[in-house]
């Protein structure tokens, strides 16, 4: 009934889809690092443009799909922009020229610039996340973590099983609430729901663990690989494009600093 966001075959077959999730993760972290140090609109704009172009070009994601995944963050970014523009510390500095007055509040151009930079930063972080989420299946991420980052097998398999359980928890909660309502109790919220939910989750986890052990999960022998994740041309292309965008963003930052 509730289905996790699905990644289409076209996205999986794209360059971004074929690149190792670790490559995407590394590039994404590098981008986030730059965004962390730079409160400035320019690098954020460069990275938003780059990840949008990357999603549409290298990722095979239809524009509508990308926009739909990205849209909720526009609201958040707008909130950040408004709050920081109105309440920004720069508004208190008399040296800054007034842009407009909202009753007792004075809004300055400097505060607007900071607000824009922070809002764009939210969008840029979101763009990185959307690019990763729309081209990476959990199975492949787990495979890459085990095969390329040499994380323990049990950890990765356990995380995968847990990830599959999340949508079912949402269903359980909906049913438990209905169960309260049909017994004449206000259904919306009650601490007992949490306990029942926990019991269901633990019992199901026990059954899944049993099923996994029945197929030799607990044997401890090193498993062979049905799916292979290996470095390839896609990693080169994605890595080069990602680093190129990072360089451009850094350059734009330098330009605004030196001006």
């Amino acid at each position: 009934m509730i289905v996790a966001p699905q990644i289409g075959d076209r996205q999986l077959a794209s360059l971004l889809g074929r690149a190792s999730p670790l490559t995407k993760l590394a590039i994404g972290l590098a981008w986030l690092g730059l965004l962390l140090v730079a409160v400035d609109s320019r690098p954020a704009l460069v990275l938003i443009a780059a990840s949008t172009a990357g999603c549409l070009g290298l990722g095979g994601i239809p524009l509508r799909r990308f926009a739909r995944a990205w849209a909720p963050f526009l609201v958040a970014a707008l909130g950040v922009l408004v709050v920081n523009t109105i309440l920004g510390a720069a508004n208190l500095d008399a040296a800054n020229p007034t842009l407009l007055r909202l009753g007792p509040l004075r809004v300055t151009g400097a505060a607007l610039a900071v607000g824009m930079a922070l809002g764009l930063r939210v969008l840029a972080v979101a763009a990185v996340g959307v690019a990763f989420a729309l081209t990476t299946e959990a199975t492949r991420l787990a495979d890459a973590l085990v095969q390329q980052a040499h994380l323990p097998e049990r950890f990765a398999a356990g995380a995968l099983a847990a990830q599959q359980a999340v949508p079912r928890l949402a269903l359980d909660l909906a049913t438990l609430r209905q169960a309260r309502r049909v017994r004449g109790l206000r259904g919306d919220w009650h601490p007992r729901l949490l306990l029942s939910l926990l019991i269901l989750a633990v019992r199901r986890a026990g059954r899944v663990a049993l099923a996994m052990d029945a197929r030799g999960f607990a044997s401890g022998a090193p498993p062979s690989r049905y799916r292979i994740v290996s470095w390839g041309r896609a990693d080169l292309v994605v890595g080069a494009a990602g680093l190129g965008a990072l360089g451009l963003a850094a350059l734009s930052l330098l330009i605004s600093w030196t001006r």
């Binding site: 030799g216 022998a221 049905y226």
Partner: peptide
């Protein structure tokens, strides 16, 4: 394939 991998096939 999950069970086959655990058998090391």
């Amino acid at each position: 394939a999950f069970g086959l991998e655990r058998l090391g096939l």
